[in-house]
């Protein structure tokens, strides 16, 4: 096996990011072909992902694939709803094997409903939290501005 499942998931995320639909790897007699399907949006835990309210008009979505945890796996999760967060604050993690990728608040704001179960498998674009930015000039549909 060239790559472990977690690595393949990371690779898929990267392919999505750069817009590559298919890739083939060959190494020491084994080969791996990765085809990225059309992105599917997972439904919200408590029903309809689209049923946003005026209070929380945006969605924080996953930017990596793996297993989602609100807060951090080593800390007891505080209820997300109503929590005020700062821009860039890590509000959850996505685990691929032992690696944790951050889910960060795109701006200062308040978290709304949790849209994905703790421990749930998520993919690029899976909605995770409802989010209400504090300032009206805040982000476009919850897509985080890269701070780099």
């Amino acid at each position: 096996m060239i790559l472990e499942p977690a690595e393949i998931m990371s690779l898929v995320a990267h392919m999505r990011r750069v817009g590559v639909a298919e890739i083939e790897l060959e190494e020491a007699g084994s080969a791996l072909r990765v085809v990225v399907p059309e992105q599917a949006i997972a439904p919200a835990v408590d029903g309809t992902a689209a049923a946003t309210t005026v209070a929380a008009p945006y969605v924080i979505a996953a930017e990596a694939c793996g297993f989602f945890q609100p807060g951090h796996p080593a800390r007891a999760a505080a209820p997300a709803r109503g929590r005020r967060v700062e821009a860039g604050e890590v509000v959850g993690t996505i685990a691929a094997g032992p690696l944790l990728r951050p889910v960060a608040a795109p701006a200062a704001g308040t978290l709304g409903r949790l849209l994905c179960a703790a421990g749930g498998r998520v993919d690029h674009g899976t909605p995770l939290f409802e989010f209400a930015p504090h300032s009206p000039s805040s982000p476009d549909s919850g897509k985080r501005k890269d701070t780099r």
């Binding site: 890590v90 094997g97 032992p98 690696l99 944790l100 990728r101 951050p102 960060a104 780099r148």
Partner: peptide
């Protein structure tokens, strides 16, 4: 990720 990365 600007917010960093972690280890389990």
């Amino acid at each position: 990720d600007g917010a960093g990365l972690g280890a389990l």
